[in-house]
Amino acid sequence: MKKTFHPLLIFSLAMAILLASVFIITWLLETQQLSAPVRLALALVPVSAWTVCLVMELRFLRRLDELQRRILLETLAIAFPSLAVAILGCEYLRKAGFISSLKPDHVLIMMVVLLLVGYVIARRRYR
């Protein structure tokens, strides 16, 4: 019988590779003098790991039971519009001169934090 890996395992592995690549590539782009093709290639490396994550995530979702699906749905239903509201709030604070413009790192941090908050709220509701 052909052995298949659980999508969650592949997803976790792709996430680990992605996180490692984030630190290494950031360091390389900021500290080394590289030629344009190498810089472009490095900038696009995380796309492949991220694409694997996306595919595995969707496969993983289809394996969830009813309760897990509801928790995840509520987590995302909280995190997704919260992110839009948070970005909108930042945009207006920037227009009013209270903060400087958002950076990609800030958006990613917001996404992770809101995902965790959403998960805690959803978990409490379905406990």
Partner: peptide, 22 residues
């Protein structure tokens, strides 16, 4: 939602790197 959330992160990371790479 899952597609959009992870896809947004992908766009943000890729654009961020392309920005850093100039």
């Amino acid at each position: 939602l899952a597609f959009s959330f992870v896809g947004t992160a992908l766009v943000v990371v890729t654009y961020g790197y392309l920005q850093r790479a100039g």
